[in-house]
Amino acid sequence: MWVAYKTIVIRDVLRFSRIWVQTIFPPIITTTLYLLIFGGLMGERIGQMQGIDYLQYIIPGIILMTVITNAYSNTVMSFFLSKFNHSIEELLVSPVPYWVILLGYTSGGVVRGFVVGCCVLITTSFFVEFEIDSIGITFVTFLLTAILFSLAGFINAIYAKSFDDVTIVPTFILMPMTYLGGMFYSIDILPEFWQDVSRFNPIYYMVDSFRLGFLGVSTSDFWTSVSVLLIMIIILAIVSFYLLKKGVNIKT
């Protein structure tokens, strides 16, 4: 099983590495633009957020947004393409347990999230000096977030029947949730009603914990955030496994 798992992960890593111009390079360009426009030009006028320079304040959000979108899109594209070109049959005729298939694809998403996250982190270091407050909290938050969105991408891929179905969720659900999850601001500055609404957005907990790990400031409790993430991971993992085992949109 270990060999099969390793094969799935390495195949996925090679897949996104071969097309690095589409997968790794664009987030670096986007990050540079965010830092130039929001941080450099507008940041000076905004001043500080929770006692931290705005340019520094938005870095965790930008990195985490990259992790979210890349973990999600890697799994959704990888699994959807294997359905599209029928190469999923290579796995279906092999003695690979369904949970290994799920773990393999999820790990592929986590690896891409990590690789792209590191590239973005390196890019930000050219714009602003910073020290990571807690590597442990930062890494745990990254890992849970990447796993969660890899699983979400997997479910999207199972239901997707066309390339449109693959892009709808990231564009109309994921992106708005990310922007409204406190990526560029602290929810403290919102009216009370919108603060309560923001607390229903799981991305808020991820961004807040990541910011805690990075900068040492947050607006929520770290363990609450970890609990929210773990509960969601468990739910999505169970749903993904059930859909895969049942062969929804894979086996007729």
Binding site: V3, T7, R18, N85, H86, E89, P95
Partner: peptide, 26 residues
């Protein structure tokens, strides 16, 4: 199978080695 069911963007040798990997062959 009757229909081509491999990833056309994978090198040929890799397709074979991956398939062996799915069967647990190192």
């Amino acid at each position: 199978p009757q229909e081509f069911n491999f990833n056309p963007f994978e090198p040929i040798e890799e397709i074979l080695i991956n398939q062996a990997g799915f069967h647990g062959i190192n």
